[in-house]
Each structure stands twice: as C-alpha cells, then as structure tokens.
C-alpha cells in the first residue's frame, strides 16, 4: 500500500524517522511497470448497442489484474467514506439535486481506498493516474449506485508529475461534504405539537384568531 500520507507501512519506518520523511515522493518505477495501462475508451464497446453495454476484450483480459488509469475525481459527496468516483474528464455531480438520475458515464470507475480512521476521500482537481487491481461486474454500492468497474486502489498519483497524492482528509474538515437531510423535512405541523412560531395564515383579515390550533 503506497498511498501517501499514512498509507506507507509502519513496519518499514526506520527508527527516529518522521512519517513525512518516510513517505515516498512517487510511486516506485518497478510498481508502475507492473500495472497495465487502461483508458476509459477501452471499457465498453462503443457506440452502445440497442440495449446494454459490452465490455471490450481488453478490459475482460484485465479483470482481476493490476492496471493504471488516468482521469479526474468526480466532485460530489458520496456517503461511502472508502470510495470515490473517477471519470475521464473533470466532472461535477450534484447528488442532492439529481439522485441517481444523472449524467455520470457508465464507464465511471468506482475507486475503493483502504479505510483510514475518520478520513474520507475529498475532491481534488488534479488530473490523476490511479494504480490498483481492476474488478468487473455489477455491484450495488452503499449509495445505491450500481458500479460496473471498480479499482482496489494502491496509489493515487498526479498524472503530470507522477507524485503521490493523498485524497483522504478528515471528514470533520470537509466543509462541502453533504449532511444527510431528515427523511421528511416537510411534515406539516403536528396537531399535538406546540403552535408554530409563525402561522403564515394568521395575518389574514378573516383569520385573526390566535395561532394555537
């Protein structure tokens, strides 16, 4: 596991060395070479047929093997703290607005990171190259989204420089992360509840009675 910022093995740390000093600056070259490059164009046969999508021969070959792929984190707020969405182009997905009726490409990669404390993936804008093991097949994720390709991620790197990137941050520091709404924010005032602070209908000429139901 060579995710920066805590992903490095504790056993490998020399006595007296700090964590920062211990972190590799880049994904080791020998590790890079062991990962087969894959592009988002090589996921499904395109254009799509009249019904479902078919995996390409190449990606079927790569199922279960180590791959690397370049793209961008989707900016959104997933409830799954161990995963993020990854696409070919920079993309925003307003989950609260759209639900799962969206414009996310079916080629989207569901990236699974090792869980670390109270951290979760936080959006970064860099073009990234990810390294990990590819897994194909439909799977219903925690969010309800059905993923069709997943990456058990070993390393996140800056696609331009090759430097390792840390995408996990403490959830408490992610101000933009979605806060779940109450399931029924709009229940009308209950008859056994205290009178509402302001009865919107009380100022009407024909309704000058007290607010209390």
């Amino acid at each position: 596991m060579t995710l920066a910022g805590g992903g490095a093995s504790e056993e490998a740390k020399p006595a007296g060395a700090t964590q920062v000093e211990q972190e590799p600056k880049a994904f080791p070259e020998e590790s890079r070479r062991s990962h087969e490059p894959l592009s988002f164009d090589e996921v499904f046969v395109t254009p799509a047929g009249p019904k479902g999508l078919e995996y390409t021969a190449k990606i079927k070959e790569l199922n279960g093997r180590k791959i690397c792929i370049t793209g961008f984190m989707v900016r959104h707020a997933d409830i799954d703290t161990s995963a993020f969405l990854f696409c070919a182009t920079p993309r925003a997905y307003n989950e609260r607005e759209e639900g799962l009726a969206d414009s996310i490409p079916p080629q989207m990669l569901y990236v699974i990171l090792p869980v670390r404390g109270h951290d979760a993936p936080a959006w970064r804008r860099e073009k990234m190259t990810l390294y990990g093991t590819l897994e194909l097949g439909s799977h219903q994720e925690l969010s309800g989204r059905v993923s069709h390709l997943r990456l058990r991620c070993e390393a996140v790197t800056d696609a331009r420089t090759g430097a390792l990137l840390e995408v996990r941050k403490p959830i408490a520091f992610q101000s933009g992360r979605a806060v779940p709404l109450p399931s029924d924010v709009g229940a009308l005032p209950r008859s056994d509840a205290p009178a509402p602070f302001f009865n919107p209908r009380r100022n009407r000429d024909n309704n000058l009675t007290p607010d209390t139901p």
Binding site: F44, A48, K51, G52, L53, E54, Y55, G99, L100, P106, G137, S138, Q140, S143, G144, R145, V146, H148
Partner: peptide, 22 residues
C-alpha cells in the same frame, strides 16, 4: 436506459432493494 437493463448487464442501474437509493 440503465433502469431498464437487467442488473448483470453492462451499464445497468437496477438495484436489489426497495429501500436503497434507486
């Protein structure tokens, strides 16, 4: 179209729950 495809088909979004998202 994803909602109309069997879940084992590439690109399907159909879920196996009556409570989850989707």
């Amino acid at each position: 179209r994803k909602w109309f495809l069997p879940s084992t088909t590439g690109g399907s979004g159909r879920v196996n729950s009556s409570t989850a998202s989707g």
